[in-house]
């Protein structure tokens, strides 16, 4: 970064205006991050939740974030699509300042899929209605087009036969896969996962992780907050450890697990891997 002149130019361009060759040019100039955190600070009242976070995620990268509960992992994720405000610093998504005043936040949010720990499917809608409501209302897709797309995505997450089911008729693992499909149906640039398997029974964890793994292989840019270290080891490009609001360590998985630099990372890993 630091190439502020070019940065300004890019923020003026809508993603659709940019031709692929233009994209390559920009990449060659060194502006290539999909998500950038610059000195991000966040307080809840007097509680300092995020402390001077600096972070960047490249297009196609899978970043796994772990850390003890209450360390600020979820807040970090929620700041990315402005479910939370910032007190200082900035987050830039694909050249657009998330917390900027002039930013069209609903438009930006449409580019970011978010999967919650508690699924949060709309209980009064069927699976297919759950995943097509935003494409129809936000992307203005025709209903039939959205349904066709939704069915394809449901097939992809292995729930093609559950299109007409209500959330209450699905198991936890199935509900979470519908929630992932809901994010994918917006055809986002980024997918964010906030402890997607933490409220699942053990036998359902893998069906959800498999879906996320497939997405990683397809080159989706993702940040996954999770305690599933096996998943981090095989699917992540980098693993980050957050403790008491600070980004303590960030490294490729081989390095992160074999040879963590920080004492607190080591302690956390010994606890979580001993399970």
């Amino acid at each position: 970064m630091g190439n502020t002149g070019f940065e300004k130019k890019i923020t003026l361009l809508r993603p659709n205006d940019i031709k692929p060759t233009f994209f390559k040019k920009i990449a060659a100039m060194g502006i290539k991050d999909m998500i950038t955190f610059k000195n991000v600070n966040k307080w809840f009242g007097k509680h300092h939740v995020l402390k001077e976070i600096n972070l960047n995620v490249e297009p196609g990268e899978v970043l796994v974030v772990c850390g003890p509960s209450g360390s600020g992992k979820s807040t970090l994720l929620r700041c990315i699509n402005r479910l939370e405000s910032l007190q200082s610093g900035e987050i830039i998504i694909d050249g657009i300042k998330v917390h900027g005043r002039e930013t069209n936040i609903t438009k930006l949010r449409a580019e970011i899929g978010f999967v919650f720990q508690q699924f949060n499917l709309y209980p009064h809608m069927t699976a297919i209605e759950n995943i097509t409501i935003a494409p129809i209302k936000v992307r203005k897709l025709k209903k039939e087009v959205a349904r066709k797309l939704g069915q394809e995505i449901l097939d992809k997450v292995g729930l093609g036969d559950k299109a007409g089911s209500y959330p209450s008729q699905l198991s936890g693992g199935q509900q979470q896969r519908v929630a992932i499909a809901r994010g994918l149906c917006m055809q986002p640039k980024i997918m964010l996962f906030d402890e997607p398997t933490s409220s699942l029974d053990p036998e359902m964890i893998n069906e959800v992780l498999d879906v996320i793994r497939n997405l990683a292989n397809e080159g989706m840019t993702m940040i996954v907050v999770t305690h599933e270290m096996g998943f981090a080891r095989e699917a992540a490009n980098r693993v980050a450890f957050i403790d008491e609001g600070r980004l303590v360590e960030i490294a490729p998985p081989e390095k992160f697990f074999k040879n963590p630099k920080n004492e607190r990372t080591r302690l956390f890993l010994s606890k979580i891997l001993a399970r």
């Binding site: 949010r109 899929g113 978010f114 919650f116 508690q118 949060n120 209980p123 409501i133 935003a134």
Partner: peptide, 27 residues
């Protein structure tokens, strides 16, 4: 209505009136 459902609506880019109409009011 659980706040999580509303947040899911916010996160997928639905505006205030769309969330009222499709997510909040029917249930």
């Amino acid at each position: 209505i659980p706040s999580g459902h509303i947040e899911a609506g916010i996160a997928s880019g639905l505006n205030y009136f769309q969330r009222m109409r499709y997510i909040i009011l029917p249930p």
